[in-house]
Amino acid sequence: MTPPEILRTLVFGFPVIKECLDTAWPIFIQSLGGLMLSFFITIGSLIGGAILGMILALMRFTPVEEQAKRFRFRPVVLIGSSVEWFIRGLPIMIIVLLFNYLPFALFKLRVPGAILAVGAFSLYGGAYFSGVFLGGLRCVSSDLRNASRVLGLSSLQTLIHIRIPIAVRTMLPALLGITVTLFKDSSVLVVVAVPELMYTARQMAFSSPSDYAPVLGTTLLLYWIIATMISGLARLLEQHWDGAVSR
């Protein structure tokens, strides 16, 4: 294959066979491939992970005023923490495989691989998001809130002008870091035949062994460049906001 063909296939995936699509599920997701599917899974799992992470963080959150009090048994906090511990204790490879094989083994349910992949990565991202959100919820001290109320801001204004900007500045670099992790780890989907970038590259390389080096090298470079760009953005934001948070 010529270099432009290799690159085009890596970015957009193999042509889709219409007969293989499962019409019970959205066609759009099943017709994506290559790097585009990697992006879709990253973005989808960012959204799903943010929702799950917020739920877990709110379950685990205890207001600062209450932390000084003596220990009290809180079942909701316990449930949130153990769910997070459970997900963090599993490798992403195992989460992806379990998501792919358990629905059929338990409920005889057939779901397209791309949708299961988004689910698996949402779960994985949610566990890491919850820690970041918890930090964001805690980082605005009650003194700062009281001060803004004393200066005459309403509680809504305090939320919009004080709490959200500070929380976002604290959380955004960490969120971009998790985005990089999700994008990089989406390459483990190669084991469950979801046609994202790594799977496309492996099929291409194995179908024409003379292309091993160019195909796998281009894939590695694509992953590396995109991951470096996102983490560079995180570093820029961190430098831009350096010192502006705690004041």
Binding site: S187, V190, A201, A205, G217
Partner: peptide, 17 residues
């Protein structure tokens, strides 16, 4: 180089090249 390198492509590249 190594922080931004995803593991699976890195492994496949090195093992097959």
């Amino acid at each position: 180089l190594f922080r931004n390198m995803p593991l699976v492509p890195f492994l496949l590249f090195s093992v097959f090249v």
